[in-house]
Simulated assay, not measured.
Amino acid sequence: MANRIFIHHEGFMQPNDLDRIARQIRLRDVQAVYEAGAGHIGGEMSAIDILTALYFQVLRIWPDQPKHPDRDRFILSKGHVALALYVTLAKRGFLPEEEISTFLKPHSRLNGHPNCNKVPGIETNTGPLGHGLPVGVGIAKAAKLTGAGYHTYVLTGDGEMQEGSNWEAISSAAQFGLDNLTLIVDHNRFQQGAALKDTNDLAPFPPKLEAFGWDVTEIDGNDIGEIVPALQRRGTRPHCIVAHTNKGHGISFMQDKVDWHHKVPNAEQYKIALAELSEAL
């Protein structure tokens, strides 16, 4: 289990350290997609900086006790980018790093969507879009009812925000005063098959969330220096972070290309991706 990184939840890492970890996660993600011959690589690249900030700086978690009652809860609502979460969990110590090589193989517990019954560190099964935030609202409400001190984070895609269930959850969260809930919208401007603006353009998101009674922060979602303080922000209302990201971030030929929503690099593209991601390691 070489190169595993362990960090106490009260520790502090510099943005440069977190950037290096994010680049390592991107590199292993690309390798796993290439080896498996499948994966939602574009949305994985856009979300990895957020996942890195959460798991290596923000979340109060214990990898050796994944069900610790005081842990913060994180829900990957855009469950099709499960591989990025698996690599992050492995690097954080929840599962063996060598297990990533089993992604999508027969009998592997690392399926195309996360399964809380099989993978430590997964809070709930996701895949059908629009389910993660309603579950997160329930988890945050439960904390209020029981006096628990954990915080709940939910990551959705911007295309996923077209699901009506999300807006019902947003309304409920404001009604319940869930100041222990943070929603992160991975606003990479593309969904499966098309740009958001050509499908059902809900952007800009901030005025809509504010109209529902939420606090909203807009950030560069591929800048660790902006992500960490936004995730740590606390107020008196539920909080939404609109994270402006790039689909395929970090790989020149993938970035902002809709066809990389679900696509596998060929041998030459794979070589280029490895070189670009390895450059600053």
Score class of each variant (00 low, 15 high):
224 I>Y: 06
239 H>I: 13
166 N>K: 03
268 E>C: 01
258 V>Y: 00
49 D>A: 02
203 A>Y: 13
195 A>D: 08
38 A>Q: 13
273 A>D: 06
8 H>W: 10
196 L>N: 15
51 L>T: 07
114 P>T: 09
73 R>L: 09
254 M>K: 14
274 L>G: 10
236 T>R: 15
53 A>F: 00
30 V>G: 00
39 G>N: 04
97 E>C: 05
276 E>G: 02
148 A>K: 15
67 K>V: 11
263 K>D: 04
51 L>V: 06
110 L>V: 13
162 Q>P: 07
177 G>T: 11
120 P>S: 08
189 R>D: 13
279 E>M: 01
28 R>Q: 08
68 H>R: 15
144 K>Q: 15
126 T>I: 14
138 G>T: 04
219 I>M: 11
31 Q>M: 06
75 I>D: 01
52 T>F: 00
102 T>M: 03
137 V>I: 14
233 R>S: 12
224 I>R: 06
127 G>L: 05
194 A>D: 13
199 T>V: 14
148 A>W: 03
11 G>T: 00
192 Q>W: 09
5 I>H: 01
253 F>T: 11
216 V>M: 04
63 P>G: 12
35 E>K: 15
207 P>R: 06
96 P>F: 01
134 P>Y: 04
116 C>N: 12
179 D>M: 07
112 G>N: 07
272 I>F: 03
234 R>Q: 15
149 G>A: 10
82 A>M: 13
251 I>T: 07
196 L>F: 04
260 W>V: 10
179 D>V: 10
48 I>E: 07
129 L>R: 08
49 D>L: 03
82 A>T: 06
25 I>D: 07
221 G>A: 05
100 I>S: 09
147 G>W: 13
280 A>F: 08
169 A>C: 06
41 I>T: 03
70 D>L: 11
251 I>S: 05
64 D>W: 10
124 T>Q: 12
94 F>Y: 15
149 G>M: 05
98 E>M: 02
40 H>V: 06
39 G>D: 07
173 A>N: 11
39 G>Q: 07
7 I>S: 01
219 I>R: 11
97 E>S: 04
52 T>C: 02
14 Q>D: 09
34 Y>A: 09
84 A>I: 08
39 G>H: 05
155 L>F: 08
268 E>R: 12
99 E>V: 12
28 R>S: 00
277 L>A: 08
77 S>T: 09
281 L>G: 02
144 K>G: 09
254 M>S: 08
225 G>E: 11
225 G>R: 14
258 V>H: 01
30 V>A: 01
99 E>P: 14
280 A>Q: 14
48 I>K: 04
71 R>K: 11
187 H>S: 07
58 V>E: 06
42 G>R: 01
189 R>M: 14
114 P>H: 04
264 V>L: 05
175 Q>W: 07
10 E>R: 10
18 L>V: 07
170 I>T: 06
197 K>F: 02
236 T>I: 11
52 T>N: 03
34 Y>I: 02
75 I>C: 04
47 A>E: 04
234 R>Y: 03
20 R>T: 04
31 Q>N: 04
6 F>K: 07
78 K>Q: 12
65 Q>H: 07
190 F>A: 10
131 H>A: 08
244 H>K: 09
1 M>F: 06
132 G>E: 14
108 S>C: 03
94 F>W: 11
7 I>P: 00
96 P>E: 07
109 R>W: 08
